[in-house]
């Protein structure tokens, strides 16, 4: 059963996964060329001053990529399920509703994290090429809130798509949008680091909202 569910999700996601992997890679390459050009066209002291002293992050081009990636993965997985309420096919399978949803979320989140790992890794390697190791390491806590925003956009989109009542949909949309906005509200390296682990600890709550919307869809979604 599990392998069948994973197969279904992979079939839906594979084209989007390949496209987003390519797009994210292209953005990382652009960042690399931008840094390289800056290094060649400006004095090293000036670049150092901008990047280290005034916290001009050289990889902001990637800031919203995890958000968009999470949103697209969620839509790619669940829009086909909502069209004609096809989710009822999966809900009739001889397995528990939550187990089925876990398989869906696992696939989506795994591929999402694969894209994010590639982004983080490439940014790290680029920074390591031109800057001291400390700058390269600082990219991890700087990118982390953007990745968490992507996780929230993924869970939020799935929850909103599964939800059957418009007032609840709008409410959930507002809640998840606000949470995502908070994660983009700061600037500078690792500005969110003090709260990061609390946020990671609270992330499972976002998953619970998916299961609740899934329950509501199964029990009332055929209207």
């Amino acid at each position: 059963m599990l392998s069948s569910l994973l197969l279904k999700e992979w079939l839906k996601l594979r084209i989007f996964f390949a496209a987003l992997l390519l797009l994210n890679f292209a953005v990382c390459v652009k960042i690399f060329f931008d840094i390289r050009q800056q290094m060649h066209s400006e004095h090293a002291e000036m670049v150092w001053y901008q990047v280290i002293h005034i916290h001009t992050i050289p990889y902001t081009a990637i800031m919203y990529m995890p958000l968009a990636t999470g949103l697209i993965f969620a839509a790619a997985q669940f829009v086909p399920e909502m069209l004609g309420r096809r989710m009822r096919i999966s809900l009739h399978l001889p397995t528990g509703r939550n187990r089925m949803l876990v398989a869906c979320l696992f696939t989506g989140l795994l591929l999402y994290l694969a894209v994010c790992c590639m982004d983080s890794g490439l940014v790290f390697l680029m920074l390591r090429t031109y800057f001291p190791m400390e700058v390269a390491w600082s990219s991890i806590p700087t990118i982390a809130p953007w990745i968490i925003a992507g996780l929230l956009s993924y869970c939020g989109t799935v929850t909103v798509l599964l939800e059957i009542a418009w007032p609840r949909r709008i409410f959930l949309l507002l809640v998840f949008s606000t949470l995502c906005l908070v994660l983009f509200s700061g600037t500078g390296y690792g500005w969110f680091t003090p709260a990061l682990w609390y946020l990671v600890g609270l992330f499972p709550l976002a998953l619970l909202s998916v299961f609740e919307s899934g329950r509501r869809f199964q029990q009332q979604g055929a209207k």
């Binding site: 279904k8 079939l11 004609g84 309420r85 096809r86 096919i89 009739h92």
Partner: peptide, 12 residues
């Protein structure tokens, strides 16, 4: 169970 409209996964 056959759903109304012969629901199937069209991406498969």
């Amino acid at each position: 169970l056959l759903h109304e409209g012969h629901l199937a996964y069209e991406f498969m």
